[in-house]
Amino acid sequence: MTVQQSDLKLDGNAIGGLLREIFTMEMTAAEGTCSSCGKVHAVGQVEVYMNAPGVVVRCPACGQVQMRIVKGGGRYWLDLSGIRCLEFSSE
């Protein structure tokens, strides 16, 4: 099986606004450690798929799903299990 990069792929800046809603601070410079391959990427560098029932964030190195964000019916559902650690400034 080969995988062709889809036109639907965006980078992490596409979810800057959504993450600001959730974390109430700028998150695109935050750095996440992939729980699958261990590589560290800034949120702005991750792969984002938004043409879906929710937002799917994938590791740019290994393709593993890092975050799933669903917003609907007045609620958010946030799965960060694909990120082992998320580091961001408290300032």
């Binding site: 099986m1 080969t2 995988v3 062709q4 990069q5 889809s6 639907l8 792929k9 798929y49 043409n51 879906a52 029932p53 799917v56 994938r58 393709g63 799903v65």
Partner: peptide
Amino acid sequence: YPVLSAGPTPRIPLNE
């Protein structure tokens, strides 16, 4: 026919 996708599009050769 909108396209929705949660990831890259897999291309699976028919012989696989």
